[in-house]
């Protein structure tokens, strides 16, 4: 694990990409910086989901719950109890981790099949949504408006557009690195074994409960942290966005289109599809309402038809063909 991980960490391509990304706010208008920031939010979320959904093969729809806790709960702690958002971030992440562990335990204890797991996690997400919309402390259906971002780092403020972009860039990079680390560690091998054949994994002595819980806890905590950062960027904690199962569907879509179970697949999916969706809406939204959704849908269907395993494997194949034999990526 360490060798692969440190190879990535010392890669000039990795650092060069980050450096180019970091200067984007000086090159692009605030609209395109916003789109990139949004893409980075989804890079981080899709990468965090990939640990459970891609590597362990557990299609969790509960991630809106973790994002919702990270965003709505930390915002409420700040606005209702005056708790600093850094501390709110930690508290929310711990609660999300505990909930993630409970969900993973339920999955193991009751030997849920794939479909049952999907439905159970969806039920958790729906319950979270109902609780938030009906509880005044969390803003109810009206949501919560955070104080203006004046750039006070100690108060979890990053100074608006550029600062938020860099913060999300850092967070997205961390989430991708966590994927790289897990994928190349024993945990990653165990998770893939569980995904491919759970009974065989158990038979050879893989501690299913332990690794499922570990994956879910890491994934839930990361999603929660991204949720806190996202709500700080948005300023408005909107329950219909942040704790809606729709956000999980989007994450699953980006991860699937990019390449499920790959370290960089979900990031690629988000980096292509988020700007595509946003720009299509901007260009076509006023021409014929809904047209952008239609084109977006056609693109997604096309990608899935052309390369069912995602875009990253396709790019790897094309790269290998161009460069000669190459080592295929882990998935």
């Amino acid at each position: 694990m360490r060798e692969e991980f440190y190879k990535t960490l010392s890669s000039p391509i990795w650092w060069g990409t980050l450096a180019i990304a970091a200067i984007m706010p000086f090159v692009l208008s605030s609209y395109y910086v916003h789109i990139l920031t949004l893409a980075l939010v989804y890079v981080a979320l899709a990468s965090s989901w990939n640990i459970v959904g891609g590597m362990a093969g557990q299609i969790s729809l509960a991630h809106s719950l973790f994002i919702g806790i990270g965003s709505m709960f930390s915002a409420a702690l700040l606005l209702k109890l005056g708790i600093n958002m850094w501390l709110g971030l930690v508290i929310s992440a711990v609660i999300s981790g505990i909930l993630g562990a409970v969900i993973a335990w339920i999955d193991f204890r009751f030997q849920l099949g794939h479909l049952s797991f999907v439905l159970i996690t969806l039920a958790f997400a729906e319950m979270g949504s109902i609780v938030v919309e009906g509880w005044d402390f969390l803003g109810g259906a009206s949501g919560l408006l955070l104080p203006k971002d004046t750039g006070n780092f100690l108060a979890f403020q990053f100074g608006g557009g550029h600062g938020a972009f860099w913060m999300m860039l850092g967070l997205a990079a961390i989430c991708v690195l966590v994927n790289v680390a897990i994928l190349n560690s024993p945990l990653g091998y165990y998770l893939r074994t569980i995904r491919d054949n759970e009974k065989a994994a158990q038979a050879i002595g893989v501690n299913i409960l332990r690794y499922k819980i570990t994956a879910m806890v890491i994934s839930a905590m990361l999603a929660s942290v991204v949720g806190t950062a996202y709500v700080r960027y948005l300023t408005f904690a909107d329950p219909y966005l942040l704790i809606s199962p729709v956000i999980t569907i989007e994450i699953v879509l980006f991860a699937t289109v990019g390449g499920l179970g790959r370290a960089y697949g979900p990031a690629l999916g988000a980096l292509l599809l988020v700007p595509l969706g946003e720009i299509l809406r901007g260009k076509l939204g006023s021409t014929l309402p809904g047209l952008h959704y239609f084109i977006y849908g056609i693109v997604v269907i096309s990608v899935i038809l052309v390369t069912p395993r995602g875009l990253l494997p396709l790019f790897e194949r094309l790269w290998a063909r161009w460069r000669g034999p190459a080592v295929a990526g882990k998935s």
């Binding site: 605030s30 609209y31 916003h34 789109i35 949004l38 948005l234 408005f236 909107d238 219909y240 966005l241 946003e278 809406r281 901007g282 939204g285 006023s286 309402p289 952008h292 959704y293």
Partner: peptide
């Protein structure tokens, strides 16, 4: 003209 698809976050994006 712009369409925010009835989603507040997109209202902000389109306004931007």
């Amino acid at each position: 003209l712009a369409d925010d698809t009835s989603q507040p976050a997109r209202t902000a994006a389109e306004a931007r």
